[in-house]
Design a binder for these strands. Structure first.
Lengths: 129, 129
DNA sequence: CATAAGGGTTCCAGTGACAGGAAGGTCAAG
DNA sequence: CTTGACCTTCCTGTCACTGGAACCCTTATG
């Protein structure tokens, strides 16, 4: 398979696939004309990466997970640790965002949103809390 | 005030303050020795920026908000629009993250996390869902 | 007076995970 | 033979800073 077809199959942009090769996440073969030729294992890896990235794992995490995936003698504890850490990060980010959202939605509600200049949003931002 | 003192007062790193000058968010004066000299209005702006950034507004949004802040004849509707748009983005991000968290927490719960290689997390990532 | 510590300055490079685009080679169809 | 769709590499830009090098200014101390 050429990169275009792989892109369609995996849902990953060709740019992204090339990038993944660049950083040594995958190593497709090359045809005589220089085109990348993707084997089933490459496509499998790309699907793995797509899933992992969709769950918000960093590229570094993906590298670790991929290595564990291919290591038959791994301990599931190692996988779980990576996932649990990432879960904690996600939770932290969610709670950050919720804090912002709560403050911001109060401010938005309090703002008339008309032609007048008076605005609680700006008033809040302008006050050193 | 010199940059160090301003940094302490505003809680912003000196690097960040210099960056904000670089991108023309603030324009402190200069002493004869080349040191930045910050007036009250500069510090006020920096506090504003700190608050706005803490609420997750982009630098571009901050620029807009700052301009509105200084425009006595603004319409609060303009402010509200910026804030509402940003709120929508935050909500979108939260729901993205919640989706990830739900999937991921199921997987983490399902994983034994022991010495054995069998792992539902990797199994899920490896299946093209 | 020399010096050392603790400010300040500029400029350059790196971050993460790609995306956009230019310049050019390759392939199948008409 | 040409057209258009594909592929290649390489360079730049994103966002909001952060780290570090190399150097200047100020104040206190031996």
């Amino acid at each position: 398979m050429n990169i275009g077809e792989v892109s369609t199959h995996t849902g990953l942009p060709a740019k992204t696939i090339r990038y993944y090769e660049d950083i040594n996440l995958i190593t497709p073969l090359r045809d005589d004309n220089g085109y990348r030729r993707f084997r089933d294992q490459d496509i499998h890896k790309l699907n793995f990466l797509g899933r992992a990235r969709a769950l918000g794992f960093t590229i570094d995490d993906c590298r670790t997970l991929l290595a564990l995936y291919e290591d038959e003698s791994r301990a599931s504890a190692d996988v779980k640790r990576v996932a649990r850490d990432h879960l904690a990060q996600i939770d932290a980010k969610i709670s950050d965002l919720r804090g912002m959202r709560d403050t911001l939605s109060h401010l938005v509600d309090a703002c008339a949103g008309d032609d007048r200049p008076d605005c609680p949003i700006l008033k809040d931002l302008g006050s050193k809390a």
